[in-house]
């Protein structure tokens, strides 16, 4: 039993995009979906300009509106404080999406990864095509990561929602979430809020921090320290 959280140090974050890309890689996330994403804004007037990027993901709220809204308990809190989703129970009603104030849940209105099912070629008979590639690799997506299947649908099928699980399949095996692992800036720290000696607690006590939309009472578990 743990109370997992993530701290993103905006001072270290350079906004490179690696977390967003590798999240898709790890979780076989289809085109157009962003379990890990970014908010960015440019403020001020030339030459006094400020540009900020804020990496976002499911906040794994302690008081998760998506969980409350889910009529089938497909969206649920696990014993470690993660907000998880059970595809077997999901009926695709999208109430979680409506309730989610952070816009991190996506609905598969069609069979995902349409890109990889295209059977036409740029130059017929000479360049390959997506169908040929996936036929050769024997997977729906050529770089499909089978490890995702350990705790979730490897690829979420048509008609249900999907979202960040904080890589519960990796955490389970003692690894860090993949966005943490692959952040070249070391800006993402994952750990247990209930462990007073954890790195997340160390950072939260050392630096000022904030959460997104705290006024909603969702108690997000993603914390941001310092400034971009």
């Amino acid at each position: 039993m743990a109370n997992y959280a993530m701290v993103i140090d905006l001072h270290k974050c350079v906004g490179c995009g690696a977390c967003g890309i590798t999240c898709k890689n790890e979780n076989n996330v289809p085109e157009g979906f962003f379990w890990a994403n970014f908010l960015h804004k440019t403020t001020g007037k030339f030459p006094n300009v400020r540009y900020e990027i804020l990496p976002t993901l499911c906040n794994h709220c302690e008081n998760a509106p998506c969980v409350k809204a889910c009529p089938t308990q497909a969206m649920y809190k696990d014993e470690n404080g993660l907000t998880l989703h059970d595809p077997d129970k999901c009926i695709g009603c999208k109430r979680c999406i409506v309730a989610d104030p952070y816009g991190v849940i996506y609905f598969n209105k069609e069979k995902p990864h349409r890109f990889w099912r295209d059977g036409t070629s740029a130059i017929e008979g000479i360049t390959t095509n997506a169908q040929e590639v996936t036929a050769k690799t024997g997977t729906e997506v050529p770089y499909y990561n089978p490890d995702r299947e350990k705790t979730y649908a490897g690829i979420r099928p048509k008609g249900i929602v999907e979202k960040c699980t904080l890589c519960d399949h990796r955490i389970r095996d003692g690894e860090k979430p993949y966005c943490v692992e692959s952040c070249p800036a070391g800006a993402r720290v994952f750990g247990d809020l209930d462990d007073p000696g954890s790195e997340v607690n160390r950072l939260l006590s050392k630096y000022d921090h904030f959460q997104l939309k705290p006024e909603l009472g969702t108690k997000p578990k993603v914390f941001y320290t310092r400034e971009f």
Partner: peptide, 30 residues
């Protein structure tokens, strides 16, 4: 219980829409 209840709410969609396509159980990275 809530599943059935909820399905009524959204208009007769009684069966769960989908099942996971693939499920693995092994530990450690492949």
């Amino acid at each position: 219980a809530t599943g059935v209840l909820a399905s009524g709410v959204i208009g007769g969609k009684l069966t769960l829409t989908a099942l996971a396509e693939k499920k693995g159980t092994g530990g450690g990275e492949s």
